[in-house]
Design a binder for these strands. Structure first.
Lengths: 205, 205
DNA sequence: TTTTGACTAATTAATTTAAAAAGTCAATAA
DNA sequence: TTATTGACTTTTTAAATTAATTAGTCAAAA
């Protein structure tokens, strides 16, 4: 009973923290600000989360869990490989647009994100993503759309390349505090172009 | 006459500066050190190069010109697309191994590399690389190895993806001061895997 | 069990100071 | 005239100090 109330409160805190993290970034958000947003004292905030890192971790977990869920849902309802992958790319772009200020797993984050636990969280997510992709490829292969190939290696390359295109555009080509819409569009286009070639390389002939 | 002597001296300076830049990085190399290495006074060094930026630029130009030349030579003597691209990948890896400390065009460089001119130089090089790749693809297409495709877009994606794999491994996955041999091997393997799929997608069937 | 004000400890930001490096120039030698 | 240099100034960076902010604690109370 009371445990559920506590959980509910925790979720409220996570939601509030997320708003500030996503807009101002993690370093530029203080525990006091989050507490104030909730009309709570900082001490109370610390009653629910023992330290800032654990709150960041909870927020990260929240959005990444949702991120993976979205991908799963999309791939499950996809009628063919290409359509599924296109949707996957769009989900990634949307996620990036929403949360780039948090610098999750882009190697650019502030000190907090150098934390070991957060690194592990990202590794987990990347692995989950790959498992989803592998399952999807296997399914499409069984449906006869894809040719016989090394699914582990191929899905790995696919995710590497998608992330690589992202990082290259945002952190190498046009490094800015806040990426422009053009940059996101560029990434999307590049990913889709890549998908086209990739698809021709793995489809059944 | 004397102009050639001056040019020769400039080349000596470039070669000496390069050694330090490649080993210690640009920021950790002083003009005095370079002058001392050449048994020259700093004032003399400034006689040949008006400022540090111009020397960095000359060094950058030197190694990048050579880099592009190597790529050109390899592609010219390549018997087929895949072999040519494999060599290209190896050239890129070797270049990266040699000069990662200079952080050329990886978005990680010290203040000097935020210079506008150096940015332009990198853009130039990227464009030259793409022109080479385009010419190569066109040739292989005419030889009947590749199917009809948008060469501009395809070559663009290829270079983007190669660079993306690099940046992802070095700056996101395992960010360290000095990348390990394993990391370079990972990059090479990923690039080659990518090439295999890519190739299947663009070869003539 | 949850909340809080009033606290301390740890980080970060701002300021100052010292050191190092970039860059200049008149004098000098080839 | 071209190249070189020592002695210089200016600019940047690094180190040290201080001030301010923020993270985190805890006894008391609702």
């Amino acid at each position: 009973m009371t445990e559920q109330i506590t959980d509910h409160k925790k979720e409220q805190i996570i939601a509030t923290a997320l708003k500030r993290f996503a807009h101002f970034g993690i370093a530029k958000t203080t525990m006091n600000e989050i507490a104030d947003d909730l009309s709570l004292s900082k001490a109370s905030l610390y009653y629910y989360f023992p330290d800032k890192t654990s709150l960041i971790l909870a927020v990260g977990h929240h959005i990444l869990f949702d991120f993976v869920k979205q991908q799963e849902a999309t791939l499950n309802k996809a009628l063919n490989f290409k359509a599924g992958m296109q949707n996957l790319i769009d989900i990634r772009i949307e996620f990036g647009k929403k949360y780039f200020m948090m610098h999750i797993g882009d190697g650019q984050g502030d000190s907090y994100f150098h934390d070991q636990q957060l690194h592990h969280l990202m590794e987990d997510v990347r692995q989950q993503e790959q498992l989803l992709l592998m399952a999807f490829m296997k399914k499409m292969q069984q449906q006869g759309e894809l040719k016989a190939l090394d699914i582990v290696a191929t899905s790995q390359i696919f995710t590497d390349v998608l992330t690589g295109i992202w990082v290259f555009e945002i952190h190498v080509l046009h490094k800015t505090l806040i990426p422009s819409d053009d940059q996101f569009n560029n990434i999307r286009t590049k990913c889709l172009n890549m998908l086209n070639i990739f698809y021709d390389g793995i489809k059944r002939v």
